[in-house]
Design a protein around this nucleic acid. Structure first.
Lengths: 279, 279
DNA sequence: AATAAAATGAAACTAAGTTTCATATATTCT
DNA sequence: AGAATATATGAAACTTAGTTTCATTTTATT
């Protein structure tokens, strides 16, 4: 977290930098400070403090405090990107780095997801008539996984990689339907256009995206924020899939949990049939 | 802190003990809870929660939360399955469990992957003419991700969910080709049949599968073993995707690393075009 | 059984965190 | 350059969380 803030210093605005500097120099004090105190110390407003935590991809100031407290226990910082990747790394070394990066990203997800938003999402999905998932490129993986999982729960789910196919489904959406847009940047044109169209039809828009000022993030009714793990500019983000899938997992498990045994019986049934049919 | 609470159990009143018990059993949840929530879970009043923290010598509930967060950083005991999932878990609790489980699974991958096998896999893929990925059900996600990543590297990759489509590709395989079979159990009939057919054509068979006595594992030329994370029989394994994808990531990053800058330029090129075309 | 002491929860209160909105500043376009 | 637009910021309103008070219940003591 601290390393990430340090690396982003240049990206920050004047006000954000004032906060970042205070945080970097007095990290150990933050967990016991209030927004008001930090605001005073950094000579900015309280609102800016809250905004700062969101801008570094943390859901709330409270989560930020806890994250820093944990980080300072042992100073070992997570490797969150591959900029350190050397030309002569062996496959096994790279594998270890991948494990580290992926695990670190999933960990950060704890701080970026907001409890309330998650609860809203689960409640919305519970009562949903139809659910559409959409993501392109890397995020298509998460959409596909969601499609598979939610279908198993008996939902009427649509996901197709083809933009035009999805487009043709949206006119039939209404208030009880949900459109789940998955995009790391929150700026992908295809995803954004479909999301807007779906919302216009009255569907609830859930966004699984990095926390930022992206249009998707702003326009979503419910935001499930994935952490802003810095990506290697050369190979793109490999971690976003992990966090996106973890979010899907959490939604899926929550729904299973609330549906009770009935749904599990049907699922078992399907499995038994599969075993019979496939051998 | 937790030890201290445990030691004082006998000293506590009935109400205090209720709180202590919940704290001991769900310590990792406390840092994100409010007094109200903990009060509800322990079936006591909010006032008692605050009094409890004072009674164990902590100034405020807020300080208590931060202390627990710090204490749990180094306590890496992973939950590896969901059998503990209670009927009355909230979505956020389940989310935290999912994070735990997924992170734990990725960690275990460090122990299950063998260095030599990984190196063999990378070497084989480097020289591959064509690469086929195949997985069904949950493992289709990993296959799809691999398809996407390896295509970006300029490989001639085939992946299709349809068994018969894949079947029709295999007769054209030869010694320089690779078939990557992805299956958690290593027993899925479709995957197994295609893998055998591909091997018969002379292709190298790489298996990404749980380490066990499954036919796929035995017959593979190269085994990339995913950990046998205990799965909740009711909802199916949610972790296998994580580990499978991490393996794919490692292979991908290794190949990028060895290919050098040339491939990265082409990739950048594609990205720039994408930006131009899509807005 | 009566009284005192301790424990507890409901509700009032205080503090903390977050959002909104108006204003200031920067950026883009003509 | 100047208007128009977008972005950033702080003050204040608002919401939520944490703490204290006080009346009530429970337990212990005489």
């Amino acid at each position: 977290m601290l390393g990430q803030i340090r690396r982003q210093l240049s990206r920050f605005s004047k006000t954000e930098r004032k906060i970042a500097e205070y945080v970097l120099n007095h990290a150990e004090l933050i967990p016991t400070m209030t927004t008001k105190e930090l605001a005073a110390k950094a000579d900015v407003s309280e609102a800016s403090v809250v905004r700062f935590t969101k801008s570094v991809g943390i859901g709330s100031f409270k989560a930020f405090k806890i994250l820093l407290a944990q980080e300072l226990v042992n100073q070992e910082e997570y490797i969150t990107d591959f900029s350190i990747t050397q030309k002569k790394d062996t496959p096994y070394e790279l594998f270890q780095k991948v494990v580290h990066v992926n695990r670190g990203a999933i960990d950060l997800l704890l701080a970026s997801i907001e409890k309330k938003e998650l609860e809203k999402a689960v409640k919305t999905l519970q009562n949903a008539r139809r659910i559409l998932f959409y993501g392109v490129g890397g995020s298509a993986v998460a959409a596909m996984d969601a499609h598979f999982k939610f279908t198993k729960l008996g939902y009427q789910v649509e996901y197709h990689a083809d933009f035009h196919y999805m487009l043709s489904v949206i006119p039939f959406l209404s208030e009880n339907d949900v459109f789940v847009a998955i995009s790391m940047s929150g700026e992908t044109k295809d995803v954004l256009e479909l999301a807007r169209f779906a919302k216009q039809q009255g569907a609830v828009l859930i966004a699984i995206t990095n926390l930022n000022k992206s249009p998707l993030c702003k326009e979503a009714d419910i935001q499930l924020a994935t952490p802003n793990v810095e990506k290697d500019f050369r190979v793109g983000s490999i971690t976003s899939r992990m966090t996106q899938l973890t979010v899907i997992d959490a939604l899926y498990i929550s729904l299973v949990n609330q549906m009770g045994e009935g749904i599990i019986d049907r699922y078992q049934n399907a499995r038994e049939q599969a075993v019979k049919l496939r051998r």
